[in-house]
């Protein structure tokens, strides 16, 4: 069973269709599956529903798919810093389901874990609760949220072994892990692919069972949204 594909276009072969749901990893521009987003843009697939914490920024990340009008609906917790998004949203060309960040992560985790719904205190008494079942546990209100099952997951890892075991790096793990588990098919792009046996089995972040297809995406030109530094103290 060969999971490694030569590039993003090849890895997406046979998986894309109009109106599909895609779960994407990343937080802001940190840990986003850049190669797969580019290939999805090039494919021209449209009417996408995308579950992703953010929607990229203008012409970066998922912002690229917004620019080409390939997205019908976003399920996100925060969509600031994106003018094209704002324009489409205000013109009602783009549907947005705002989902609290933790609820979105848990919806992906639950979907991947075979849990169709769960009760959470997050959003009780707010707009988020509208139309959702409310149930009391131990005298407190909770709302029912649905797990997300996507047609496809696209994630970005740091290192993979040839079997698809994955490691992430620092805060680039974020939504990549829960997103990877909730798709019928998951494609991971990574910076390095190493032979099996090279990674410590005790330290795998995402076991290979969740990764169906794998590509080497390097070299990456990782973008920084807000570069903040401090002055070096005088010696």
């Amino acid at each position: 069973m060969q999971k490694i594909y030569p590039n993003a276009e090849a890895a997406l072969e046979g998986l894309l269709f109009d109106g599909m749901t895609i779960a994407a990893g990343g937080f802001g521009l940190c840990g986003i599956p850049e190669r797969l987003i580019d290939a999805i843009q090039a494919s021209g697939v449209k009417d996408l529903t995308i579950a992703s914490n953010n929607a990229g920024i203008d012409n970066e990340g998922l912002g690229k798919l917004l620019r080409t009008r390939q997205v019908k609906k976003m399920i996100s917790s925060y969509v600031g810093e994106n003018k094209e998004f704002e324009r489409q949203f205000l013109a009602k060309e783009l549907e947005v389901e705002f989902c609290p960040q933790g609820t979105l992560a848990e919806r992906m985790r639950a979907g991947g874990a075979g849990i169709p719904g769960f009760y959470t205190k997050t959003g009780v008494g707010t707009q988020v609760a509208e139309g959702k079942e409310v149930k009391q546990f131990d005298g407190e209100d909770y709302i029912l949220e649905r797990g997300i099952r996507a047609d496809l997951s696209i994630v970005k890892g740091w290192k993979a072994d040839e079997s698809g075991n994955l490691l992430f790096r620092k805060t680039a793990r974020n939504f990549n892990l829960p997103a990877a588990t909730c798709g019928k098919t998951c494609i991971a792009e990574v910076e390095e692919i190493v032979p099996v046996g090279s990674l410590d089995p005790d330290c795998i972040h995402l076991p290979s069972i969740y990764v169906n297809r794998l590509i080497l995406g390097a070299p990456y030109d990782k973008k920084i949204e807000f570069r903040t530094v401090r002055e070096r103290e005088a010696a």
Partner: peptide, 27 residues
């Protein structure tokens, strides 16, 4: 490091006791 940001998407640094985890674990 582009892989090391806070929730405001600003670059930050780690400490000796730092740990990293995914968003589901975080919440």
């Amino acid at each position: 490091d582009p892989d090391l940001i806070n929730a405001g998407k600003q670059t930050i640094s780690q400490l000796p006791q730092t740990s990293y985890f995914d968003s589901a674990q975080s919440f």
